[in-house]
Amino acid sequence: MSNEIKADKTLDLKGLPCPMPVVKISKGIKEVEVGQVVEAVTTDPGSLTDFPAWARTNGHEIIDTVQGDKEITFYIKRIV
């Protein structure tokens, strides 16, 4: 399914220290239009709990999470 999602912006958040992944995604999401999708690639296992919590408190939607071998890719739709 992930292959079909077209991302409007890609953020490379690999190997960043705490709390940069969440900080950068919350900035990055503001750089796309409402309804558009940001693709965020991380290596942090913690982002698997952080990103859903972030999306919920900020009213965005994670439309897919793909766990690769080394990386985790989130597809996040800007709602507000």
Partner: peptide, 9 residues
């Protein structure tokens, strides 16, 4: 209790 990053785990 770690941090989100792999480097802390």
């Amino acid at each position: 209790v770690a941090l989100a990053g792999a480097h802390s785990i």
